[in-house]
């Protein structure tokens, strides 16, 4: 032990203390509170899904008698798996369709000049101002007249193209320099190939974001799927889970077990696509 060791340790401590500014303490506290608020519902969901019915209304986060019976029950006695697959099919098809068509329309609205382009764009934008609740009745009448009720297509059709996605894609294509398109044109690509092979890869971050939003939106969609089908075999997950709520009582442990399972695909989907949301890739081929 030398005498010099002590002051140096003290000095190091002092430096650390100086780093912790009041602003940082406030920031960390707020972040921690926000984090807890975000995570709590998930924790409660998982915890409740592991409880017996009599324990559901206790506020303990760790079940006294943990059980997997609720999971077993929903697999054995409900059409959970069926609903899960329905949701998956509808969400994936809708997402693919939105990414394709919104990308196509957004590109055309951005990179082609034609008479009425602005009018078309504003018309598409204006659809964003109308709430779903106002649209379900026209949708319903339309689906009924075409005989689309109680079909997968009937549940899907309102979502296969979105005004929001078109708007988003158009804005992102604005950032694609025209020279790429000119270069591709000289390279001999036709307009569809230019869009598909040059422009779309350049807006991957936007596409990923749009894909995530669309998938989540369809995965959690409730109102329209509820209206569009009365056939239990065609229920989507949210509609199916809601059916656990009876007229007099709700089986919360079942709802929570179903909901826990329902979050898995969204997590997987997010993990797959989030890595494509890397901005700034687009401009690396131009400028010096």
């Amino acid at each position: 032990m030398t005498a010099g060791a002590l002051p140096s340790t003290a000095a190091r401590g002092a430096v650390r203390f100086k780093d912790v500014r009041p602003g940082r303490i406030v920031a960390w506290t707020l972040l921690a509170m926000g984090g807890i608020a975000m995570v709590m519902p998930l924790v409660v969901m998982i915890s409740t899904s592991l409880k017996y019915p009599h324990e559901v209304y206790d506020l303990n986060l760790i079940p006294v008698e943990p059980t997997l019976e609720n999971y077993l029950h929903i697999f054995q006695n409900t059409k959970f798996l069926r609903w899960f697959v329905n949701s998956l099919i509808i969400s994936i098809l809708t997402t693919a369709s939105v990414v394709f068509f919104d990308g196509l329309v957004g590109y055309v609205l951005c990179k082609f000049s034609f008479r009425g382009r602005q009018v078309v764009f504003v018309a598409i934008l204006s659809t964003l101002m109308i709430p779903t609740e106002m649209l379900v009745i026209p949708w319903y009448l339309m689906a009924r007249d075409f005989g689309w009720l109680n079909s997968v297509w009937g549940i899907m059709f309102p979502g296969i193209m979105t005004g929001f996605g078109t708007f988003l894609m158009r804005q992102f294509f604005e950032g694609v320099p025209d020279d790429y398109i000119h270069a591709a044109r000289i390279d001999g690509l036709n307009e569809f190939q230019i869009w598909w092979r040059i422009a779309m890869p350049l807006v991957t971050p936007a596409l990923s974001a749009l894909a995530i939003f669309t998938f989540l939106g369809n995965w959690t969609a409730f109102l329209w799927p509820l209206i569009a089908t009365s056939n239990r075999d065609l229920y989507t997950l949210p509609v199916g889970l809601a059916s656990f709520s009876g007229e007099f009582a709700t089986e919360w442990e079942m709802v929570m077990a179903g909901a826990s399972l329902a979050t898995l695909p969204t997590l997987v989907f997010f993990l797959i696509f989030q890595r494509y949301i890397i901005r700034g890739v687009m401009l690396t081929g131009v400028k010096g």
């Binding site: 320099p177 020279d179 790429y180 000119h182 270069a183 591709a184 040059i198 890869p201 350049l202 991957t204 890739v281 687009m282 401009l283 690396t284 081929g285 131009v286 400028k287 010096g288």
Partner: peptide, 8 residues
């Protein structure tokens, strides 16, 4: 002018 190399 800006090369227009396809970045991907």
């Amino acid at each position: 002018q800006n090369y227009a190399l396809y970045p991907h």
